[in-house]
Simulated assay, not measured.
Amino acid sequence: MGRGSSIGGVILVIWLIIGVIAAGQRGYFNSEETNCAKAGTIVVTIIAGPLNYVGVNPKINCDLPEPSK
C-alpha cells in the first residue's frame, strides 16, 4: 500500500465526518420518527459530505409495498 491510499482514506473519513455534521445541523438525528425515507435521507446526506454546504440537499422517498388484506 502506498502513501496515496492512506491520504485517500483520510480524505474519505473527513468527507464522511463533514456529512455527519451536516445531517446533525439539519436535525436529522433529533426526531423519534424512523422510517425508510428518513434513514435514506440521513445516509445520502452523510455521503454527500461537503456538497451539503454548496447547495446539495439530498432527500429520499421510500414507497414500501403495503401487505394485502
Rank of each mutant, 00 (worst) to 15 (best):
T41H: 06
G4Y: 03
R26C: 05
K69Y: 02
A22R: 06
I47P: 01
N52M: 04
G49K: 03
C36Y: 10
N52A: 06
K69L: 03
E33I: 11
Q25Y: 04
D63E: 14
I21R: 08
I7G: 01
V10Y: 12
M1G: 11
P50A: 07
I46T: 04
I18C: 13
G8V: 00
W15R: 05
Y28L: 15
E66F: 00
N52I: 11
T45A: 01
G40N: 09
K38V: 13
K38I: 14
N57K: 14
G9H: 05
V56W: 08
G27Y: 04
C36R: 09
T41W: 04
F29N: 08
C62I: 05
K38M: 09
T41P: 06
V44L: 14
G2F: 01
T34D: 13
P65H: 08
E32A: 14
A37R: 02
V10G: 15
I42A: 10
V13E: 05
K69V: 02
P67A: 10
S31H: 13
N52D: 00
R26F: 11
C62F: 08
S68A: 08
G49R: 01
G19F: 11
S6Y: 02
P58S: 06
S68P: 00
G27P: 10
V54K: 01
I7W: 04
G40R: 11
A48Y: 07
S6F: 03
S68T: 06
R3D: 02
I18V: 15
L16Q: 04
V10Q: 11
T45H: 01
G27L: 06
I11R: 10
W15C: 02
T41K: 05
I14N: 01
G4Q: 03
I14P: 00
I46M: 07
I60S: 12
A22V: 00
N35R: 06
N57F: 02
M1W: 02
C62G: 05
S5D: 08
I42E: 10
S5I: 08
T34G: 03
I47E: 11
S5R: 14
I42K: 13
E32Q: 10
I47G: 06
